[in-house]
Nucleic acid binder design. Structure first.
Lengths: 359, 359
DNA sequence: CTGAAAGCGCTTACAG
DNA sequence: CTGAAAGCGCTTACAG
């Protein structure tokens, strides 16, 4: 018995050998012709015969065999905590796929749920399949430790950075985003009554849902805001705290508390869209209109921005562009390790106007 | 020159041959031990030596070689129009991944953007890589034509059906969902003033954005609604049209028009959450409160439901369960071709109350 | 210009 | 009980 009798192949798939037989040439010749190798100077007649035979038989080379021989599989993996399975941040996959499309590579999507033993198992499984590269990503922007196994393949960090100096990373430019938000309000005439909504309570580094995720976004957005305001000769009037996750209900209660405190904001910079939507609800309950009585701007640029009236102006996470760039860097065999910061564009809604005359 | 000198391998990866050498046994023995084949009755001593050698060398078998030999790759592909890259429906990926996790299989995510030439290229690419099965999905529920290439591998349809009688498909139970929505309103005391919001204009089969997608959802939800209402001795008071896509702005204008028409609805069944949110906005503009003046229920169960106040009650698309079941069926080598309908649970918000006394 | 041969790293029927 | 050999379907240096 030979292998064929057990192999799941023999399912009718045509092999290179059969093409060679039909064309009356050697298998080498078929390989050379079909891979367009011109350095072998095959006769035009041979080429034609091979091509015709391949066509007639409907031949398509087996990639597994090719991979075993060449060591390159034409596949890339996106390994992340939750990117593949969470709607937020998911458009990073679209960006990755776009870049891979041009390179004719296939994508493995792998979510580890943040469990490191699962992560190791999956990384090993990918490496054993000879993946050409790995995009190691995070759903939210943060600092990660590079798993040892990751170094068995070329890799690029997506939406996260590491403390190692030899890595290539792609993250959104959150500092510039903070400045963009502040500038949008300054341009509209706001100055001394701008509040930020969404800092954590003292000692906390993030919500329970993401086990102390310590998002880079918060610190960097604040830094950009502070810089822009101080360049304009002012600063934040205050920072409202959010207890736990950055969601609608917490945004609502945070802003309700702020309004009840006697503070007199003219504009709110909300740490994300959900908090911004919560702010809308608190403002409405207090009889304040957006944007006439209060301007609001937030970060993320999610679908929530168009679910409210007036639509919410938001500094947008460039998820698709992040994914696209990460895949490009990986495929191009990026040389210089460094952090690439992708700009966060301002998506205009109708939530900003000049401050009320009374302030 | 042998192959090794050109192969990308020789990157330090340990092979089975090296394990055999270190353990002082044949390669067959190593393979048998590591694959737990007991029918060979290897000595306990041999087994231990092999296991220790493998451990010491950090051996992990190359899956590409295994695949070439056995014909099975331990991979599954999710091929769809937009599932992998759109936030809506994306949790189907999570369900698929959950099932694959148990089977220790890896997932290729492939989006075709609905382009059939791209689809063919990608399917061929997957088949050439010996995928064990393909989940062929659609972002929204509809009837698809099964591509010929798909038949080169076991496959299951996810969130779509075909006219072929030999296929296995998994879709949400939209008919029952319609009944669920109607029943929720009937139980609250609504009867003769229930309106549906979201039918297409005469002759249209869907919005421009999805090139006439002809969603099954619409017809089936309406059917379920009609059945439940008629069992209660009533029927829809009317059906409000939506011009194009089922989005917030169109929902708002549709309901605004309805209210201006002199109709006296006590409850609205909105075709999806976005339209429901639009309905909220139109109601608020008209000075009507949800749920005191008007009850609202919708379909999808998306994050939009918690972005409004009061939160929106919605019959939820079981995306995760759909994905999980499709992958399970694929892995279990499903036998009987049939359509599996997954229940759509009711996600309670606060948008339903008894009808106002005036009606 | 072309073909025979080796080899990628596995699995497995078969002979001892 | 174990080992040598064949084979999965390719690619490629090398000899003619």
């Amino acid at each position: 018995m030979d292998g064929r009798s057990q192999g799941q192949r023999g399912n009718g798939r045509v092999t290179l050998t059969e093409v060679a037989k039909r064309a009356g040439v050697s298998r080498s010749a078929v390989s050379f012709v079909l891979n367009g190798r011109t350095d072998q100077r095959l006769s035009a007649d041979t080429s034609n015969r091979v091509r015709r035979a391949a066509e007639e038989l409907g031949y398509s080379p087996n990639t597994t065999a090719k991979t075993l021989r060449t060591g390159s599989s034409g596949t890339v993996a996106l390994v992340s905590d939750f990117i593949g399975t969470t709607s937020f941040a998911n458009s990073m996959v679209r960006g990755v796929l776009e870049s891979l499309h041009d390179a004719d590579a296939l994508l493995y999507t792998v979510d580890t749920q943040g469990e490191s033993s699962l992560e190791s198992r999956l990384l090993l499984s990918l490496i054993n399949r000879d993946v050409d590269g790995i995009i190691y990503g995070s759903m939210f922007t943060r600092t990660v430790a590079v798993p040892a196994l990751l170094r068995n393949a070329p890799f690029v960090l997506l939406n996260c950075v590491s403390d190692d100096s030899d890595t290539t990373a792609v993250i959104p430019d959150e500092v510039a985003a903070g400045a963009t938000a502040a500038t949008a309000l300054l341009s509209a005439g706001h100055h001394d009554h701008i509040w930020f909504v969404g800092v954590f309570p003292p000692g906390a580094t993030g919500g329970a849902a993401w086990h102390n995720w310590s998002p880079l976004a918060l610190a960097e957005r604040l830094q950009g805001i502070d810089t822009a305001l101080s360049a304009a000769g002012t600063k934040l009037a205050g920072r409202a705290m959010i207890d736990d996750d950055w969601d609608v209900a917490n945004g609502r209660s945070s802003v309700a508390k702020l309004l009840a405190s006697g503070a007199t904001p003219s504009a709110l910079i909300c740490v994300n869209d959900a908090v911004g939507v919560g702010a809308y609800q608190a403002l409405q309950a207090a009889g304040l209109r957006v944007p006439d009585d209060m301007s609001v701007i937030s970060f993320d640029g999610s679908p929530l921005t168009t679910a409210v009236l007036p639509t919410l102006t938001s500094v947008t996470l460039p998820h698709e562009a992040l994914g696209r760039l990460a895949a490009q860097l990986l495929l191009s065999g990026t040389t210089v390790p460094r952090i690439h910061r992708v700009p966060m564009p301002l998506t205009l809604g109708h939530s900003i106007s000049t401050p009320p005359a009374t302030r």
